[in-house]
Simulated scan of single mutants.
Amino acid sequence: MPQEPEAAPTAEPAAGPGVRRRSRRAATPGVVTLHDVATAAGVSLATASRVLNGSSRVVGESLRERVLAAAARLDYSPNAQAQAMARGRSNIVGLVVHDIADPYFSTIAAGVMQRAAASDVIVTLAVTGSSPEAEVTHVAALRRQRVRALLLAGSRWRDEEATAALRDELNAFRAGGGRVAAISQDVLGVDTVLIDNHREARRLAEELVGLGYREFVLLSGPRGVATAVDRAAGFRAALTERGHPPVLDLECAFTRDGAHGALGEVLARGLPSAGGRPPCVLAVNDVMAVGAMAAAREAGLAVPGDVAVAGFDDIPTLRDVSPSLTTVRLPLAEIGGRAFDLVDETAPQRRVEHVDGRVLLRDSTPPLR
C-alpha cells in the first residue's frame, strides 16, 4: 500500500471523517486542538487526523512519529467521536443492565469488563432502573455514539410493545455494522446467553421436597418480569407434581425490600406449618431470599429452626450471609465473559449458548427427618 507523502501544513483540507474543521474563532484557551498538533508537527490537518483518529490510509513512519511526538508534547487528547467516525466504529462496547447495585448484575459486568480489558476494549455502562422505556433510550443513545457492540444483561419484560421497540433499535444498530448479544430470554433475535430458569427452579424445588419439606411459601416476584415468571413457574410445577403446591404465593418486587415487605405482612399473621415441620420460603432470586431472612428474624423466628429459606443465583455477597443460603449457582462472571465473546467474534449465523446452573443445598434448608 503506498504511503502518504508529506503535505504542506498550510493547505487545510475540507473536513472529512475523523477531521474536526478548525473554527475561525480562537480555540478555547488551554485546549489543544488537532490543528495545533498538525502545525507543531509541520504536516497537514488531514495527515494529523489520519495518525491520531485512525484511517485506512497509510501514513509514512517519519510523519507518523512527528505527529505522535507533537501530540505528546502538547498533551493532546483525541476526539473519541472523531475516531469512531474515521474507523466506522469505536473500540467501546455498551453494556446495559437493570440495576448495577444488584450483585447479580455487578458480577456479570465484572466478567464483561475482565474479558474486554484483555481485548483492549472499553466498556461503557448504562443502567435502566428496570424500565423498558429507559432501556430503549439507552440503546438508541449508544447507537448514536457508534459503539462497536451492545450487550444487554437482564430479564425481558412481558410487554410486546416494549420488546418490539427494543428489537427495532437493535435491528437498526446491526444494520449499521454493530454487534449485539443478550443475557436474557431468547426473544430479541440476537446472539444470546440463555439460562433455563424454569428447569433450574424445578430442580431446586425437587431437592427441597427430597429433604422433607412439605409446606412452601413462594416469593414469586413481579408478573411482568420474564425471569421471575419462569422461575416461579418452575417452582410451582415441581411442587404441584409432588403433591405440595405452595400454600402461599406472594407477588412482590424483584428486590430485597420487595420480599422483606411481602413476607413481613404474612408473618404478622403467622406462617403455616405441617406436623411440626418448618415451612420453606422459596424466593426467585437471592436478594429476595436475604430480605426474607431479615423479615423472619425481625418477627422473632429462627432461620432455619422456625422457617427455611432458599434463593436463586448464588451472588457473591452470600459468603457473608448466615446461615449459608441454599440456592442455584449460576456462573455469573463467566456468563458476562461469554456474552462479550459473542460480540467480539464473528459467526455466520445467530448463536444461542445455554448455561447450566447447579443446586447448592446449604444450612438455610437442613434435611428434615
Score class of each variant (00 low, 15 high):
Arg174Trp: 04
Ala310Ser: 12
Arg369Gly: 14
Ser55Val: 05
Val127Lys: 07
Ser273Ile: 04
His98Tyr: 03
Ser322Asn: 12
Gly18Met: 05
Ser131Asp: 08
Phe312Arg: 13
Arg231Ile: 06
Glu160Lys: 13
Ala302Ser: 15
Arg214Glu: 14
Val180Met: 08
Cys280Tyr: 00
Val19Gly: 08
His244Tyr: 09
Asp102Tyr: 02
Leu152Ile: 14
Leu152Pro: 03
Ser106Leu: 04
Arg57Ile: 11
Arg146Leu: 13
Gly261Glu: 06
Val352Leu: 07
Leu52Ile: 07
Asp363Phe: 00
Leu194Phe: 13
Leu52Val: 06
Glu207Lys: 13
Asp36Tyr: 01
Ala205Pro: 00
Val343Ala: 13
Ala14Thr: 14
Pro304Arg: 14
His35Asn: 12
Gly176Gln: 14
Ala308Trp: 01
Pro29Ile: 12
Thr124Gly: 11
Glu6Ser: 14
Val343Phe: 04
Glu345Thr: 15
Glu215Pro: 06
Asp196Ile: 06
Ile122Lys: 11
Ser184Phe: 03
Ser44Phe: 00
Glu265Phe: 00
Thr10Val: 12
Glu4Leu: 15
Ala134Leu: 10
His198Val: 07
Ala46Asp: 04
Ala11Lys: 13
Gly311Trp: 02
Leu74His: 04
Gly291Asp: 05
Arg89His: 13
Leu150Phe: 03
Glu215Gln: 14
Leu239Cys: 05
Cys252Trp: 00
Asp314His: 11
Tyr213Leu: 07
Glu298Ile: 06
Ala175Met: 05
Ala84Gln: 03
Val190Leu: 04
Ser364Ile: 04
Arg329Gly: 09
Leu325Asp: 06
Val136His: 02
Val31Pro: 01
Ser90Ile: 00
Glu135Lys: 11
Asp75Tyr: 02
Leu68His: 07
Asp168Ile: 13
Phe235Pro: 02
Ala294Met: 12
Arg351Asn: 10
